Amino acid sequence: METLYFAIALLFISYGAPANADFGEDGDPGEVYFDYNRNITLNCTIPSPDKTQSYVWKKNDVGVEQIAELKGRYKMLEEGAVFSLGRSVEDDYGNYSCALGAEERAWEVRGRPVARLPDNTNVVEGQKIKLQCKVTGKPYPAVSWYYNSSATANSSQPLKEGSRDGRVKLESNEQGIEGGALVLESAARGDAGFYSCRAGASSDHTQLRVKDMYAALWPFLGICAEVFVLCAIILVYEKRRTKPELDDSDTDNHDQKKS
């Protein structure tokens, strides 16, 4: 039984819980964060003696029934007091509100930010490199960059615009997030290490490897040297093989003249 409870808890932690928002005594739950593909549930229970009144739900001041992206994905539970949105997507963020008569409730629903970088990044010395921090979780939070010389380093060095002798630049990434892309001009061997980007409470890292600019040349030179040595051996062998043949030919000619 304990093993079963542990497995259920592990699944809950791995996949996350649906975003649920209930009003407390102050009537304001603040910001609500949700994970993608999970349900968003907003509870707007308002005591009212008038049973003829109905709950009115809106997103960004537009009735939810008028928003095409929400159709077929939400349900009204408990006589309209609970709004449940299934299989949430990134664009489900926004300002949600409900009203019952003169009473109104509101939430700021936001996607939980997740930052992503490739596991490994390779560049040749002297080349320009651009690291893209992909972020999910609208509205997108600010992105910051850090550097560690090794995986065991205890301290992270923040990377700012113009650091590394002016070679570091921060640009907008493919998603349009300002500072979401780190550009490193003319990569040097000392730039190798672990680079991480942070978006809100989420962070990810990539290991940058900087290869010697002549790394591809050495194997080619080695092949050329092997070919040169092989040709020299063949040439020496052919010379040694043809010399006895010439000597035998001279001896035969001399014998023929004597006879």
Rank of each mutant, 00 (worst) to 15 (best):
S249A: 15
K239F: 15
A115D: 08
V109Q: 03
L117H: 00
T3H: 13
R38L: 05
H205C: 13
L235G: 12
E65W: 09
A81N: 07
Y93H: 08
S203R: 12
A225M: 10
R241H: 10
Y237C: 05
G190Y: 12
R116G: 12
T242C: 02
K75C: 07
L246Q: 11
L85T: 08
Y214T: 10
A151H: 13
F220V: 14
S186V: 09
D26K: 03
A102H: 07
E79P: 06
G27N: 01
K211R: 15
R198I: 02
R87Y: 12
L235V: 13
I223Q: 13
E226W: 13
S84C: 10
S84N: 14
I46H: 03
S97W: 05
P113N: 02
R105Q: 09
I177S: 05
D191M: 00
S196C: 09
G63D: 01
G94A: 05
Q132D: 04
Y195G: 04
G27V: 02
E238I: 15
W218Y: 13
E2L: 14
D119Y: 11
K75I: 02
D250T: 12
K239C: 13
L70Q: 03
A7V: 02
K138D: 03
P18N: 07
D250H: 08
L208H: 01
L221Y: 11
S150Q: 00
I40S: 02
S14K: 14
D252Y: 13
E31D: 08
K130L: 12
C98T: 02
A188V: 11
Y146L: 09
E79K: 14
R240K: 01
L235Y: 14
D165I: 06
V32G: 01
S48F: 03
V114I: 06
K243S: 13
P139Y: 07
K134W: 14
Y55H: 05
I46W: 02
L42Q: 00
V143E: 00
V236H: 09
G101K: 04
R112D: 06
Y147I: 09
K59S: 03
G162T: 05
T206A: 09
V236Q: 11
D119P: 11
V236T: 02
V143L: 04
A225S: 08
L230P: 03
E245N: 11
E103N: 04
P29Q: 07
P29C: 09
D191A: 00
G24Q: 00
P29T: 01
Y74K: 05
A192P: 04
E31S: 11
L170Q: 04
Y96P: 01
G179C: 03
F220K: 15
Y146S: 14
N95I: 15
L4K: 13
P113R: 10
A7R: 10
P158M: 01
Y36L: 15
S249N: 13
L85D: 08
K71E: 10
V109W: 00
G101W: 07
D212Y: 08
L10H: 06
K138P: 09
Q66W: 01
R87D: 12
S84T: 10
L221I: 11
N43V: 06
A115F: 00
E90K: 04
D26V: 03
L208F: 08
Y36C: 13
S155R: 09
D255H: 11
V114R: 10
L70E: 00
D250P: 04
T152M: 08
T206E: 06
T136K: 06
D22P: 08
G72F: 00
R164L: 13
T3L: 15
R116D: 11
Y36E: 15
S203V: 09
D250V: 15
T152I: 11
A102G: 06
